[in-house]
């Protein structure tokens, strides 16, 4: 189809008023970004709560299993014990260090 046959749709051109057109483009970009942020935030919230609950439940199961077996490593908190050693300038025996930090290697 030749260019001469083209219909002039100039009066229907939405970008004839350039400033108004730029406002429209900006509004769509801003709207798209805002919706997407909302979507990402909502997804994080939706996944965050169940994930935390699942992690807490898993930790509880592991701790209970250790406690049930009488595993000393499971009944102490390494960070707390090491902090106490540091606070009291205590130098624990190698076996004790392995027991607290090394788990199975101590036995």
């Amino acid at each position: 189809m030749s260019e001469e046959g083209r219909i002039d749709f100039g009066p229907l051109d939405p970008s004839r008023d350039r400033e108004r057109w730029e406002v429209m483009v900006g509004a769509v970009v801003a709207g798209g970004l805002a919706r997407r942020r909302l979507t990402v935030g909502a997804q994080l919230r939706a996944w965050g709560v169940p994930s935390l609950a699942m992690a807490a439940a898993l930790a509880l199961v592991v701790w209970l299993a250790g406690w049930w077996r009488g595993d000393p490593v499971a009944t102490v908190e390494p960070t707390r014990v090491v902090t106490e050693w540091a606070m009291q300038d205590e130098i624990p025996a190698t076996e004790r260090i392995l027991e607290v930090l090394g788990g199975d290697h101590a036995r």
Binding site: M24, A27, V28, G31, G32, L33, R35, R36
Partner: peptide, 8 residues
């Protein structure tokens, strides 16, 4: 505009 925002 509305449709484009939905598409994005």
């Amino acid at each position: 505009q509305d449709a484009f925002i939905v598409a994005l």
